[in-house]
C-alpha cells in the first residue's frame, strides 16, 4: 500500500476525525530536513512489495525509513542521501533489507491540496492525501527553473542523515512506555506478564493497530471502562487477554483498559517491525519520557541547523 502522509491532521478529533499521518514520523522528518523542506511536508509512504516510480520532471529526492535496496536506472542509490533525477529516470527497489515502511520525499514537496490543514491520507474516511495506485502521477511544487535555483544550494548541504538519528531497526525491540490510566488496576501477576514476557507482532497488524500475541493477561476487575480519547501508541487490553497497540490510523476514542502508551521516540521502531518479530515492554515515568524526547529533539535541531547553514 502506498499513501501520501505528513505529520497528521490534528484539531478535529472532537468531531471524530482521526489524525492519521506517517507511521515512522522520525524518518519522514529527517529526509524532509535533509532536503531543506518543511518537516511536515507530505511524503510518500510505501511498503514491500514496492512501487516503481518514474520521474516525469527533474526532481531532487531522498528516501528514508525501511531499506528496500533502491536503484535509479538500475544503479544503486542509498537511503538517507540526496539524489537527483531527470525526466524518464526510473526508481526501482530490490531486496527488502530491513524495516517495513519507506518514505520518499521530493525537494519542495508534492502539489496536493490540504484538507483540514493536512495532506495525510485518511483511508477509512476516504478523504485527504492520496492512496496511490498503479498509473497515477503526482505533480511537484518545484520544477525546472525554481528547482535548479534550489539545487544550487543543496549541493553544499550535508549529504546524509547522521546514522545516530536514523531509527535503529533490529529483530527484537524493547519498547518504552508510560503507564496508562488502567495499569494500576492490574494485579502483580498481570503486570509481570506485561513487563516480563516477549510479545509477537501478529499477522493482524496494520496502520490502525498491531495485535500482539503472548500469554493471556487477566484484568481481575469488573468495573466497566467508559470510552475516552486514545493516541498513537496507546496499548489496550482486549477482552480476550491480548494487547493491541494503536498505530497512526487509530480511531479517536477507545473503550478498553489502557495499559500504557509507547513513547513517541519508540513509535518508529514499532512502525518498522515485521509480523512475527518480538517486542518487550519497559515502563518509564513521564518525566524520563520527556527527557528522552528532549534529547532526540536536540539532536534533530542540530542536524537541522547544519542543513540551514547552506540553504
Amino acid at each position: 500500500m502506498t499513501t501520501v502522509q505528513d505529520l497528521g491532521r490534528f484539531g478535529h478529533q472532537a468531531k471524530g476525525v482521526n489524525p492519521t499521518g506517517a507511521m515512522d514520523h522520525i524518518s519522514m522528518r529527517l529526509i524532509n530536513i535533509l532536503l531543506g523542506n518543511d518537516e511536515n511536508e507530505a511524503v510518500i509512504e510505501f511498503h514491500y512489495p514496492t512501487p516503481t516510480i518514474t520521474f516525469e520532471e527533474h526532481a531532487i529526492f531522498s528516501i528514508g525509513g525501511a531499506d528496500f535496496s533502491p536503484s535509479l536506472n538500475r544503479k544503486p542509490v542509498a537511503n538517507w542521501k540526496i539524489h537527483t533525477a531527470a525526466p524518464g529516470d526510473m526508481l526501482t527497489f530490490g531486496k527488502k533489507q530491513k524495516g517495513e515502511r519507506a518514505y520518499l520525499s521530493v525537494k519542495g514537496g508534492f502539489k496536493l491540496p490540504k484538507v483540514l490543514g493536512s495532506s495525510s491520507t485518511n483511508l477509512r474516511a476516504g478523504f485527504g492525501g492520496l492512496k496511490i495506485i498503479k498509473g497515477m502521477s503526482l505533480d511537484l511544487n518545484l520544477k525546472n527553473g525554481t528547482l535548479f535555483e534550489a539545487s544550487k544550494k543543496i549541493a553544499l548541504a550535508p549529504k546524509t542523515v547522521n546514522v545516530a538519528l536514523r531509527p535503529y531497526i533490529k529483530n527484537e525491540q524493547e519498547i518504552r512506555i508510560i503507564g496508562g490510566a488502567e495499569l494500576d488496576s492490574l494485579d502483580q501477576d498481570s503486570r509481570n506478564k506485561i513487563f516480563g514476557q516477549r510479545f509477537i507482532v501478529s499477522g493482524h497488524s496494520d496502520r490502525m493497530g498491531y495485535r500482539l500475541e503472548g500469554d493471556c493477561i487477566n484484568r481481575n476487575s469488573e468495573s466497566e471502562i467508559i470510552s475516552s480519547s486514545v493516541a498513537f501508541g496507546t496499548i489496550q487490553l482486549l477482552p480476550d487477554g491480548q494487547l493491541v497497540i494503536l498505530m497512526a490510523d487509530h480511531q479517536t476514542t477507545g473503550g478498553y483498559p489502557k495499559i500504557g502508551n509507547v513513547i513517541s521516540t519508540d513509535l518508529p521502531f514499532l512502525a518498522q517491525l515485521s509480523v512475527g518479530q518480538h517486542i518487550t515492554f519497559r515502563e518509564i515515568s513521564i518525566d524520563v519520557a520527556e527527557k528522552i524526547v528532549l534529547k532526540q529533539e536536540k539532536e534533530i535541531k542540530k542536524f537541522k541547523a547544519s542543513v540551514k547553514l547552506y540553504s
Binding site: 478529533q13 470510552s227 513521564i286 524526547v293
Partner: peptide, 28 residues
C-alpha cells in the same frame, strides 16, 4: 493543539516539541 471531549473525560493534546523549544522544563 486541541481539546477532545468524551463521555466523562476530556483530553488535551499539545505540542511537546514546541513547549521544549519555548523552554518549558516539564511540558506535562
Amino acid at each position: 493543539i486541541e481539546v477532545v471531549p468524551a463521555y466523562a473525560s476530556l483530553t488535551v493534546f499539545y505540542d511537546l516539541v514546541e513547549l521544549i523549544n519555548q523552554g518549558y522544563k516539564s511540558p506535562f
